[in-house]
Nucleic acid binder design. Structure first.
Length: 322
DNA sequence: ACTTCAACCTGATAGC
DNA sequence: TGCTATCAGGTTGAAG
């Protein structure tokens, strides 16, 4: 299940292979992964044909290729999405959804493969962002600014000139991610204080801080010895700093290992599986001994998903927000 | 305006 | 064997 480190591995792979390459022969094999491209499949294809990739950028779990047309090919891997660079004559994957032929990518074609199809692709416009650009680890800000006034809906048409960063319109509401050097922790603390919700809910809310999913949230909470239902408004600043630092640590470790994988659903851009699962202390360890105190780890259903925690190290708060 | 949650989707696995 | 139920979970959009 791709979270920030896995998506960053994919971004790096794409940057290595497709920057400077031109789309040539784009084929949509299943309509669902292109559902976010509202103008339809034919428009999706025509906005890519003959267009050249300028950069590969990521914010949280969103990934996009800046195009020389001024638009971006936006991708989200959802639960099971993969971006594979294959020889064109390699047999089609069972769940191949979109084939993107390329000129200038060392003879490879880009394939979007997605079993469960929670993810998808869309060609979207770039808009200015109030927080100063895409940021994110390894991301290069798009170095342009609009020359026309925004429409009523805030979207800016027309040409752009150098000066200010842009972000794909559907990503404008996503907060800077946990590994973004420009993440504003003071702002995050203020928003946590104002919220009436539980800590894990907040960590998973991509409009507060992005990139953290169910697995790394559980790992960060275990390392910080905090229960998932701790109310965010009562969390003091050192405690917030602690859980944030642990989230960053665990994701940096996963990134160093090339991403996490539990089954074969996630592979990086060249088809290599990650292997961080060996380093997990909380996720998936129901009934096993806590690596710190030996207590039996527990699993609780929460937010339509599982939360794994140590009942002794991460005691339930008196007034939790579940 | 803020917070919560069902729906989307397929395949693996468990239980009968 | 075959059937049904359950689980996996990121994001959106609707409901509360």
């Amino acid at each position: 299940m791709p979270e920030l480190p896995e998506v960053e591995v994919v971004r790096r792979g794409l940057a290595r292979w497709v920057i400077g390459a031109t789309f040539e022969g784009v084929e949509v094999l299943h309509p669902r992964p292109v559902r976010r491209h509202e103008a339809g499949i034919d428009d999706f294809v025509s906005r890519l044909e003959g267009v050249t990739v300028v950069d590969a950028v990521r914010r949280g779990k969103f990934l996009w290729l800046n195009l020389d047309s001024g638009e971006a090919l936006l991708a989200h891997l959802g639960m099971s999405g993969q971006m594979l660079l294959e020889e064109p004559d390699a047999p089609d994957e069972k769940h191949l959804r979109v084939r993107l032929g390329l000129a200038g990518a060392q003879g490879r074609e880009l394939r979007f493969v997605d079993q469960r199809m929670f993810g998808g692709l869309a060609v979207v416009e770039m808009v200015p962002t109030p927080d100063g650009g895409p940021g994110g680890l390894g991301g290069t800000p798009a170095d342009v600014v609009p020359t026309e006034e925004p429409r009523d809906d805030g979207v800016i048409e027309g040409t752009y000139e150098a000066g200010e960063a842009l972000i794909p319109a559907p990503v404008a509401h996503i907060a800077r991610d946990a590994l973004d050097p420009a993440l504003d922790v003071d702002l995050l603390a203020a928003r946590f204080k104002r919220r009436e919700t539980g800590l894990k809910r907040a960590l998973l809310d991509q409009t507060l801080i992005s990139g953290i999913g169910n697995i790394y949230a559980d790992e960060a909470l275990w390392r910080a010895k905090l229960h998932y239902a701790r109310p965010t408004e009562k969390l003091n600043r050192p405690t917030l700093n602690r859980v944030l630092a642990h989230a960053q640590d665990v994701m940096r470790e996963a990134l160093a290992q090339g991403g996490t994988s539990f089954d074969s659903l996630y592979v990086d851009v060249n088809g290599q599986s990650g292997y961080f699962e060996r380093g997990l202390d909380a996720y998936g360890r129901e009934g096993e001994a806590c690596h710190r105190c030996g207590s039996r780890m527990r699993r609780e259903t929460f937010m339509n998903r599982s939360s794994f925690f140590c009942p002794k190290c991460q005691p339930k708060p008196r007034e939790g927000r579940f």
